[in-house]
Design a protein around this nucleic acid. Sequence first.
RNA 1: GGGUCGGUGGCAGAGUCCGGCUAAUUGCACCUGACUGUAAAUCAGGCGGGGAAACCCACGGUGGUUCAAAUCCAUCCCGGCCCA
Length: 417
Amino acid sequence: MTYHPKSDFMRVMMERGYLADCTDYQGLDEALSAGMVTAYIGYDATAKSLHVGHLLNVMMLRWFQKCGHKPITLMGGGTTKVGDPSFRSDERPLLGPDQIAENIEGMKQVFAKYLTYEKGENGALMLDNAEWLDGLNYLEFLRDIGRHFSVNRMLSFESVKSRLDREQSLSFLEFNYMILQAYDFLELNRRYSCVLQMGGSDQWGNIVNGIDLTRRVLDAEIFGLTSPLLTTSDGRKMGKSAGGAVWLNSDMLSPYEFWQFWRNTTDADVGRFLKLYTELPVEECERLGALGGAEINEAKAVLANEVTALCHGREAAEAAQATAREVFEKGGAGDDLPTVELSRDEVAGGISIVQVLVRSGLAKSGKEAKRLISDNGARMGDEALTDPGLMLDAGALQSPVKLSAGKKRHALVKLAE
RNA sequence: GGGUCGGUGGCAGAGUCCGGCUAAUUGCACCUGACUGUAAAUCAGGCGGGGAAACCCACGGUGGUUCAAAUCCAUCCCGGCCCA
């Protein structure tokens, strides 16, 4: 039997497939319908940009704000110094303060696209847990907070079990991560009356800890809600493209490549992804997702357009689509293709096609480029390349040249001015 | 600090006792080709790096033994587990 939510937010979450679990559906639903609620999601600063794996949660915050509530994006400036061990088989390398600060700056760019941080009753807040974690006094913290945690219980969490079962060492530093995250929730409740933490289902244990702690210390009623860990329908983890991670920052992955990632969604995922990553009406998502045969390609383009528009703007989405049409439907080239400029110096004495393939990003190494050529996968201006020894000179690059690796990956090479 | 096991290609994990046939078995991931719809499934091939090529480099680091070392020896670094 399904619970019928009263609040807009819960209704959206359920309809669109964002919900994996909630500590108290009814209690949360009632709080949400009673008035404005504040919720947070924490992000560790482990990279310069968010990637598609984070996008689901960002969308949740966006809906949350749209429904009239107040979202907090919490940057893990403090917790990143510790490193979340959840479901990890080994310790992650520790980042320095400079790197963390840089990463936070990079991630902020994306949030601004999805959330409204302006003032206003439900304007989003951007916080950093370094604010309260950096200055903690160890003994005080242990006595006030540490005493509420049972080591026995922490050891029983699924998130660290695999680590212990494999007899991989779990350092005390990492072990404290969950305590710090729990403490975040407590602080956010105290400072901002934040009563809800959301996150991926891998964060369940951490979230529950925060709720327990806050309940004990402040006697507050607060909630946790998790989203499913998404896998594509062919069982792969969401978020790898040909080149690697699918970043949300445009300086890490161009809008065109981002668009391509969505355009290449597996048939079976189209409907689900439309509901999760776009704001089209549910019925529309379902209709598009149900298209059969080649028709579903239209739906994929819609998906790519909508997601790209949210992340990079409508204009960038249209430009990406225009290039895609040009490249895939007309067999031409487009401005939005990844472009590499070669300097005149580089080309002066002639440059091997293998080098050019590497420079263009179509091959990771010279060996790979040669393999590509011998596999018949490399093309220049749509002509198959057969000679790995081919040299190009400035004349050959007079006008931009399209290089292709396989059917989908294309790049432009031109001479720098 | 003591004992013990281990450090191999993106990951996992063989090989190490009995040195050469090992750029290195196998699985996953990944890439290309065919079929298609820029899909999935399937089938086929590939899958360390540099170099235009000849050829050169590798099994934690460094030395050594040997005609020849991932494989033997020495030493150093790093990690796991157990004991203090």
